[in-house]
Amino acid sequence: MPSDNVVVFDFDLTLTRWETASRFFKGLLRRQPWRMASLLPCLPLLLLMLALPATRGLPVRIAVWLATFGRSREALEALAQAHAQAVFDGGDALFVDAAVARLRLHLQQGDRVVIATGCWEPLARALLARGGLAEVPLVASTLRPYLGGWVSEQRCLGPNKIPMLAARGYAPPWAMAYTDHHADLPLLRNSAQWCLVSPTPGCLRRIETALQTRAQVVAWRG
C-alpha cells in the first residue's frame, strides 16, 4: 500500500508521560518481594552492566524475565489489563492531551496513523483501549517463553521499527514521524517530515547533527 500519507507516532514519552513497560514490569517485581530480593545479590554486577554500552540492555532483560517467571501468557495479559485499569482509575493522566489532539487531527485529515513502540504489545493495547485510542493501528514488541519466564522476541526499537512497520503494511518512506528519542533516527531518516517531542538537550543535538538540519520541536510534556 502507498505510504505517502502514513504518520508514525512513537508511544512512550511521545504520547505518554512515562515509560509504560518499565512501570508495569517494575510493578510485577514489587508485587512479590522474593522477586526483588532475587536481584539484590546481583545488583553490583547489574549496575556495572548498565554503565557499559555493550551490556546496557542485559539487566533490563533479566529484570523482565524475573518479573514474568512462573506466569503464563494468559496471566500476564490479565495483569496488563488490570494495570491499565489501575492507571486510569488512579487519576494520573497517562496520555498527553496535546499529543493525542495532534494524532486525532492527522486522522481527521485522512492520514494513515500507526503507533510503533518498544512497549510490550498487550500492555500498549490495553492502555490505548483505556485511553480511547483502540482503533489506532499498533506495531509493538513481543515476548516469547524462555526457561520459565518471558524474554524479548521482536523488539520494536530503533532500526527494528522499519521492517516491523513494513511487515504490517506501513513500508517507508513515511509522510511524518513523531518521537522523543534519538533511538528513532532510522525512523526520522525515512520520513519526509518529523517532529521531536520535548527532547532532552543531548537528544536534540544528536539528531540535528546526524540529520544536518534544525528540528521541529513541540514541548508537549513541558
Rank of each mutant, 00 (worst) to 15 (best):
55 T>W: 13
38 S>L: 15
135 E>S: 14
41 P>V: 14
213 T>C: 15
94 L>N: 04
108 Q>D: 15
121 E>Y: 00
147 L>S: 11
157 L>W: 12
95 F>H: 05
136 V>M: 00
62 I>K: 10
21 A>G: 14
171 A>D: 09
109 Q>Y: 06
88 F>T: 07
216 Q>L: 15
49 M>Q: 12
174 W>N: 00
202 G>Q: 12
186 P>Q: 11
120 W>A: 00
214 R>H: 15
108 Q>S: 15
31 R>G: 07
169 G>Y: 10
44 P>G: 05
54 A>S: 15
209 T>W: 03
214 R>S: 15
20 T>Y: 03
129 A>G: 05
73 R>F: 00
176 M>N: 03
194 W>A: 02
163 P>Q: 09
213 T>M: 15
78 A>D: 06
109 Q>H: 14
59 P>A: 10
98 A>Y: 01
119 C>H: 00
102 R>K: 08
181 H>F: 11
140 A>S: 07
61 R>S: 13
214 R>D: 14
152 S>Q: 08
130 R>S: 10
212 Q>N: 15
122 P>V: 08
152 S>C: 08
47 L>E: 07
147 L>W: 15
222 G>Q: 14
35 R>G: 08
196 L>C: 11
64 V>M: 12
176 M>T: 11
148 G>D: 04
56 R>Y: 11
114 V>I: 04
111 D>P: 13
44 P>K: 04
194 W>P: 01
3 S>T: 14
11 F>M: 05
122 P>L: 06
85 Q>V: 07
16 T>Y: 05
56 R>L: 02
45 L>N: 01
109 Q>W: 09
27 G>R: 09
144 R>L: 04
139 V>K: 00
100 V>W: 03
134 A>K: 00
148 G>Q: 06
111 D>C: 15
56 R>S: 10
95 F>S: 07
23 R>H: 14
49 M>T: 08
44 P>W: 02
8 V>R: 02
79 L>D: 14
28 L>C: 03
129 A>N: 04
73 R>T: 02
39 L>Q: 08
149 G>D: 04
90 G>I: 10
187 L>V: 11
1 M>K: 12
74 E>S: 09
162 I>R: 10
122 P>I: 09
14 T>R: 04
209 T>D: 15
38 S>F: 12
171 A>T: 11
12 D>M: 07
178 Y>H: 10
4 D>Q: 13
23 R>Y: 09
39 L>V: 08
39 L>S: 10
206 R>V: 12
158 G>F: 08
47 L>Y: 03
3 S>C: 07
43 L>D: 02
186 P>R: 11
96 V>T: 04
72 S>V: 04
215 A>W: 09
111 D>H: 15
67 A>N: 03
79 L>H: 06
23 R>V: 12
39 L>A: 12
191 S>N: 06
171 A>F: 11
134 A>S: 11
101 A>N: 06
36 M>R: 14
206 R>Y: 13
122 P>A: 04
175 A>C: 13
111 D>T: 10
179 T>M: 05
1 M>P: 13
101 A>T: 07
148 G>Y: 13
159 P>G: 04
97 D>C: 01
42 C>G: 08
27 G>H: 12
130 R>W: 05
127 L>F: 08
145 P>D: 01
37 A>V: 08
81 Q>V: 06
